[in-house]
Design a protein around this nucleic acid. Structure first.
Length: 738
DNA sequence: AACAAACGGCTTTTT
DNA sequence: GCCGTTTGTT
């Protein structure tokens, strides 16, 4: 009976609900995922369902991994055949298995948005359309939107002129994808639905296999995903969906929280269960969150409650600008970590700083660096988006799938090997005429090859020799790719292609890039058994957020989107200004504004004990400073929940007061003052003084300059070289004369 | 063909 | 204020 232990009555009811359609609408921190995992365990243990017959889908790999671990923990032992994974990974695997039913082969590659744009550019070129007039980004967006709605190029109907063009580009794009043996993210879903519809035997096969389907974060499903679920569940109707309409924040990728309503219409017999008890936050934080979300229309009201005490009130703070905002965050963290004597004092890993856009992370990072404090950044300049990483992956893809045009074009002359634009164009024409892919045509030019188009290559002399050399290289890698572990194959490619020497040019940037390449190699060497195909799939479908390590030893910086599903004792949300949150791109669309509100709701409900909401008086955008207007969402916080009431009791007044301040001649009023409060005169350091820093180790003070009532010192550390630190913040200890 | 310098567009959010 | 692309130079 261990499976039902420790569950509250609502949770128990959800876990043990009879098979059939079940909708669990759950508030934040209510143990949603717990209910899902216990349900899986319950089906296996008490309903005697074979693990083989269960499919549980989520949106992130992290959630999937957690779920699997917890099911294993509940039941003990391995659960062979249990399918737990993300929508995309699950679809990718089925498509690979059924590849012969459908246009691609099992070797297909997955294109991300960057690759998609390149394909669109190709398509525009072939259609003689100007890519300045029809921005590839927009085309990608329109194509993606169509795919999320299961609209094929044949079904695509235009309303506006751009869409008419988009329709043609879409058709050409799809033809190119097919030629390249490539699928984009949206294809993974749409193509699978198309296969199921076109092949009744395949449909039957998976309907029989997956007798019970469970979905987490159901509010984030798009039309294609919902269609897939409906098809798989069509025979038995065992569809168990868990979600929270108020946490739907992925509209931009087609998510439609109205699927929750559709579900109720499609399964009128379904049972709806609410989970309203929150196990995470204080009542004050919950009340604040509800204040923010309440104005949204069409919600299923949930009365969130907790058995925790009211807790500390929320701090709303106006900083002068981004730097002061960041400093407020860092200083507050340092204060809370340093506050000795308290029963439980905060640990660095207890803190999270959340923002609307990745661009906002930089100023916060800088403040942490100034303070000599380490931090953990999620996302931002994404590892897999770095040029060198993409280059190496392109090499691997080109080896794996010779038809992958985007990858081939990326590496054909990187590092420079004498195959210029003209040569490439000639080769492409040649391949086109012979009805072969560029990769196949080039392969025909390798030494001793008998394949290739039955025509002489269109290039001669130096260019011809260069292409042949490249073809030989490729052929050599392809020959070894079947039997060589991925990491070794990478070594071979890096060496023989000259890519390693190119990065290793002695410059610090080169070193950094090389480190990134090595990191990618590490990923590969961690799983020596992984095939090239599996490795490439993993690289395409696993995001960095998924790689978040569990043990937290430093404050976490992340976007509000990335924060979903996580919790932290202390949360700072920065940049709460109109134009940022809500983002200015959302102003003209009520649906989008509702989503911005949900985004803030998600952020607030990540906090367990303490919540800080920050906004700036001035914010610089692309260089010049603008005046920030406090976010309209702040108006919806019940004033009684806000600490230091005077300043922010009535936000309307606050906003009017703010407008009154928009007068000329306004010099930085609060800055010096605030520094004085936040940074009381610290110890002062002299040149030559030896110091000890908690993170950087030992060093010698090189320079000291006063700054706004504080002191900026430059220290030469033995290990790390020169660092500039703010004396009041840096936690330096003098250790005798040097 | 390879590099340096100027230019322009851009910021939501992610599988 | 950054990044990638285009343009000009050798």
């Amino acid at each position: 009976m261990g499976i039902l232990e420790g569950l509250n009555p609502q949770q128990k009811r959800a876990v043990t609900a009879p098979p059939g359609a079940v909708l669990v609408l759950a508030g934040p921190g209510s143990g949603k995922t717990r209910v899902l995992t216990h349900r899986v365990a319950y089906l296996i243990r008490h309903r005697e369902v074979a693990p083989w017959h269960i499919m549980a889908v989520t949106f992130t790999n992290k959630a999937a991994r957690e779920m699997r671990d917890r099911v294993v923990e509940l039941l003990g032992g391995s659960l062979d055949g249990l399918t737990i994974g993300t929508f995309h990974a699950t679809c990718a695997r089925i498509l690979r298995r059924e590849a012969d039913r459908w246009y691609a082969t099992a070797d297909y590659v997955i294109y991300d948005r960057d690759d998609q744009e390149k394909v669109v550019k190709q398509a525009l070129q072939r259609l003689n359309l100007d890519d300045a007039k029809f921005p590839p980004r927009m085309m990608v967006k329109l194509i993606g939107r169509a795919k999320n709605e299961l609209i094929t190029p044949q079904l695509y109907r235009a309303g506006a002129y751009v869409e008419e063009v988009a329709g043609r580009v879409y058709a050409e794009y799809q033809a190119l994808m097919k030629k390249s043996n490539a699928l984009d993210f949206d294809d993974l879903l749409m193509q699978l639905v198309l296969v199921l519809d076109a092949e009744p035997t395949v449909m039957k096969k998976y309907q029989r296999r997956y007798q019970h389907i469970l979905v987490d974060e159901f509010q984030d499903t798009n039309t294609a995903q919902y269609a897939l679920l409906k098809r798989l569940a069509a025979e038995h109707g065992n569809l168990f969906c868990v979600g929270d309409e108020d946490q739907s924040i992925y509209r931009f990728r087609g998510a439609d929280w109205r699927n929750v309503r559709r579900f109720r219409e499609d399964y009128p017999e379904s049972e709806t269960i609410l989970l309203e008890q929150n196990y995470r936050s204080t009542q004050i934080i919950l009340d604040a969150a509800q204040g923010v979300i309440r104005p949204n229309p069409h919600r299923t009201h949930k009365a969130l409650f907790t058995e925790r005490r009211a807790g500390a009130r929320i701090t709303v703070h106006e900083a002068y600008n981004e730097d002061e905002e960041a400093e407020f965050v860092v200083n507050t963290i340092l204060r809370m970590i340093g506050a000795s004597g308290r029963p439980q004092r905060a640990k660095p890993g207890d803190f999270a700083i959340m923002y609307r856009t990745n661009a906002q992370s930089r100023r916060i990072e800088e403040a942490f660096v100034r303070a000599g404090m380490s931090y953990r950044l999620v996302g931002a300049t994404r590892f897999y988006a770095r040029r060198e990483v993409r280059d190496v992956i392109a090499y691997l893809r080109a080896v794996h799938n010779p038809d992958d045009l985007v990858s081939l074009l990326r590496i054909i002359n990187v590092p420079p090997r004498g195959i210029g634009a003209k040569t490439v164009a000639a080769l492409r024409d040649w391949a086109e005429q012979a009805g072969a892919s560029l990769g196949a045509a080039i392969a025909g030019m390798a030494e001793g090859s008998t394949s290739g188009p039955g025509m002489p290559p269109p290039v001669a002399g130096r260019a011809s020799r260069a292409v042949s050399r490249f073809a030989d290289l490729l052929a050599g890698w392809v020959a070894r790719s079947e039997t060589t572990p991925v990491a070794d194959l990478m070594d071979l490619i890096l060496e023989e292609s000259g890519y390693r020497d190119r990065l290793h040019d002695g410059s610090p940037e080169g070193e950094e890039r090389w480190d990134n390449v090595l990191e990618l190699r590490n990923v590969a060497s961690e799983y020596p058994e992984t095939t090239l195909s599996e490795f490439l799939e993993q690289v395409a479908l696993v995001s960095e957020v998924d790689n978040l390590t569990e043990e937290l030893t430093a404050p976490t910086l992340l976007t509000l989107h990335a924060a979903k599903g996580l919790e932290f004792p202390v949360v700072f949300i920065v940049g709460l200004e109109d134009g940022i949150l809500p983002h200015r791109r959302s102003w003209d669309d009520p649906e989008q504004m509702a989503e911005e509100r949900r985004l803030l709701y998600v952020g607030i409900t990540r906090a367990m004990d303490r919540l800080y909401l920050l906004h700036c008086f001035r914010r610089s955008a692309w260089g010049d400073a603008e005046l920030g207007r406090p976010s309209r969402f702040l108006d919806d916080l019940p004033p009684a929940l806000i600490a230091g009431a005077g300043e922010h009791l009535d936000r309307r007044v606050g906003r009017r007061a703010h407008r009154d301040r928009l007068l000329p001649g306004l010099a930085r009023p609060a800055q010096a003052e605030r520094r004085a409060v936040l940074a009381p005169a610290g110890p002062s350091f002299e040149t030559g003084q030896r110091v000890q820093h908690s993170v950087f180790g030992e060093g010698v003070v090189i320079e000291s300059e006063p700054a706004d009532g504080d002191e900026i010192i430059t220290v030469a550390f033995e290990e790390l070289g020169l660092k500039r630190l703010l004396a009041s913040v840096a936690k330096l200890e003098a250790i005798g004369e040097g």
